[in-house]
Structures are given as structure tokens and as C-alpha cells.
């Protein structure tokens, strides 16, 4: 901390010689300390703790008998872990991709200066303000074959209509995608819309004068300008995907069986209901590794762009 004394500050300090002056000088750091300490201790400190636990054979209670990387080896041999990890890749990829496409589409639609744009924007954004638990409940109902959409369409006379993804082990993970896309695409729309509004109109006017059609203008002129928006949307969406836990709990409960488990629910099940804290911690560390693989490039580019611009 003492190294952060900037030259300006060091020069200013002797002027205020009183004890009060010294205190004033320290206030910025004192008031900042709780926030920094809290993040340092509770986040990074506890992650190290989790890592330590992942090297032990802790079961229901934490023990500190170190077993090296045995828990990781066990995890690698665990079929259920691979189901969860594969699900995360499938779910995350589809969720991010579909949200981007739908979000961009909705934003372009609203950008056509249609009437009542404000109310439409609010409605598109509504799902994002809901809890994932509520989203899960709503879609559990809609996707329930005997109550929801399937029953509704059959009621209209299409008896052969089948939509039973929720109870189909091969398809259950896609129901998570549907619900999560419903929740988040309005938010992506808002990101894109803000980006679209930030584009200089004269560029678009120029392209129009050159005779470019509207789809062409969006594809060739507007979208390239929105690359930073796409980038931050991908970051935020993948972080939502990796954190997904409550949606699974409320919508599929990880089922049928463990067909729609995600790493977060896997971790929860093993650490708490199956009393395998060591194994659960190991899976948490692997998830962390996955996040860092996304986060580090993001922070790097963020810092770099700040420095340049």
C-alpha cells in the first residue's frame, strides 16, 4: 500500500501537518478498505480454501487429510460429471448464440422507429427482471406435456402434436435453453439497441445514397460497428450460463435422472446431498478454471482498450 503514494500526494502531505490532516489523507484508503478487503477475503480467499478442500478427502465434514489430486481423478472417471460438463457446453453455446441472434433481431426491429417503441422495449425486457426461479416455474408448466403447450395445441385439434422435451432425457437440456433464451434475449436487445443508437446516422445515410438495401446496410455497415456490443453480450451471457443453477433447480431439477445436470447442480448435489465435499470442491475448481479462461481475455482486452482510448 505504501508504494501507492503518488508524487503529488507525497508533496501535498507535508502541508497538512496536523493529526487531522494526516487522517484526512488516510480517509480515502480507510473507506475503500472494507470493500476491497471483503472481495479479497470472501472471494479469492475462499476460493483458495475451496482449492485446499479439493485436495483432501473431505466427505460430510471438512477434513485435512491430503490426497493430492485423487478427487480430480475421480471426477474425470465420473460419468455424471461428464454429462454435466457436456450439458454446460451445449446449453451455453446454444443460449449465447440464440440470444445474440434474437436480441439483434429485436433491436433492429425496434430501431425501425415503430410506434410505441418504449412499451415494446419494456415488454421485451420484462423476463430479465424476473427471478430464474419464477422463469423455471413458468416454463415447467408450459413444457409439461399434459398441461402446457402440447395439451394446448392438441386441444386445437392437432392430436398428433408432441412436445415432451421436459420428460425426454435426450432433450431436457434444450428446455433449459428455451427458458433461458426467453429470459435473456430482451436484455441482449437492449444492449444492441443502445449500440445501434450510438451509430452515426450519416454513415447509414451514405450507404442508403449508395443504393444499399436495408438488410445489406445492417449486415455490412451496422453490425461491424457493433462488435464491442457483441463482445460484451457474449461475456455477460456466458457468465450467466456458467452460473446457471436456480433455473435448473426450478425447471428440470437436473432430471430426468441426471440428464440435464449442469456443473453447478452437480457440485451442489455432491457437496451437500451426497456428502462428498472434496469431490464437490474439485468440480467447483474445474468450473473456476473454465470461467477464468473466458474472464482473463475479457479483462485483458478491457484494460487494453481503456488504455488506448
Amino acid at each position: 500500500m505504501s508504494t501507492s503514494l503518488s508524487p503529488a500526494r507525497a508533496a501535498r502531505a507535508p502541508v497538512k501537518r496536523s493529526a487531522l490532516g494526516a487522517l484526512t489523507d488516510w480517509i480515502p484508503r480507510l473507506v475503500l478498505a472494507p470493500s476491497v478487503a471483503v472481495s479479497l477475503f470472501f472471494v479469492y480467499g475462499f476460493m483458495i480454501w475451496t482449492f485446499v478442500l479439493s485436495l483432501t478427502n473431505s466427505r460430510m465434514l471438512p477434513s485435512y487429510d491430503f490426497v493430492g489430486f485423487a478427487q480430480y481423478a475421480q471426477l474425470m472417471a465420473n460419468d455424471r460429471w461428464w454429462v454435466a460438463a457436456t450439458n454446460l457446453v451445449v446449453f451455453g453455446g446454444l443460449f449465447v448464440g440464440i440470444c445474440l441472434v434474437l436480441g439483434a433481431g429485436l433491436a433492429i426491429l425496434l430501431d425501425q422507429r415503430i410506434r410505441q417503441e418504449g412499451s415494446l422495449r419494456t415488454i421485451y425486457l420484462y423476463p430479465m427482471a424476473l427471478s430464474f426461479i419464477v422463469t423455471g416455474v413458468v416454463w415447467k408448466w408450459l413444457l409439461n406435456p399434459s398441461l402446457g403447450l402440447q395439451a394446448m395445441v392438441r386441444g386445437w385439434g392437432f392430436e398428433g402434436f408432441t412436445f415432451d422435451w421436459l420428460v425426454n432425457p435426450d432433450m431436457a437440456v434444450y428446455t433449459l435453453v428455451i427458458a433461458a433464451v426467453w429470459q435473456a434475449s430482451g436484455f441482449v436487445m437492449a444492449l444492441f439497441l443502445a449500440g445501434l443508437r450510438g451509430i452515426d446516422d450519416s454513415i447509414i445515410k451514405a450507404a442508403q445514397l449508395d443504393g444499399a438495401s436495408l438488410p445489406r446496410i445492417y449486415a455490412r455497415v451496422v453490425m461491424p460497428c457493433l462488435r464491442p456490443v457483441v463482445f460484451s453480450a457474449v461475456m455477460i451471457l456466458s457468465h450467466i450460463a456458467i452460473k446457471s443453477f436456480d433455473l435448473v433447480v426450478a425447471l428440470t431439477g437436473g432430471g430426468p435422472g441426471y440428464a440435464s445436470d449442469l456443473p453447478a447442480t452437480f457440485m451442489y448435489t455432491h457437496a451437500f446431498t451426497r456428502a462428498q465435499i472434496g469431490l464437490g470442491s474439485a468440480s467447483a475448481m474445474l468450473m473456476l478454471g473454465g470461467v477464468l479462461a473466458i474472464l482473463i481475455p475479457y479483462l485483458y482486452s478491457e484494460l487494453r482498450s481503456r488504455r488506448h482510448g
Binding site: F42, V43, F46, M47, W49, T50, L53, P62, M235, H239, I242, K243, F245, P263, A264, M267, Y268, A271, I277, G280, S281, S283, A284, M285, M287, L288, V291, L295, Y298
Partner: peptide
Amino acid sequence: MLPPVGVLV
């Protein structure tokens, strides 16, 4: 940005 499962236990 870090997943909360990392500090859950």
C-alpha cells in the same frame, strides 16, 4: 464474474 459455487463450501 466468478461462479459462486467456488466459494459455496
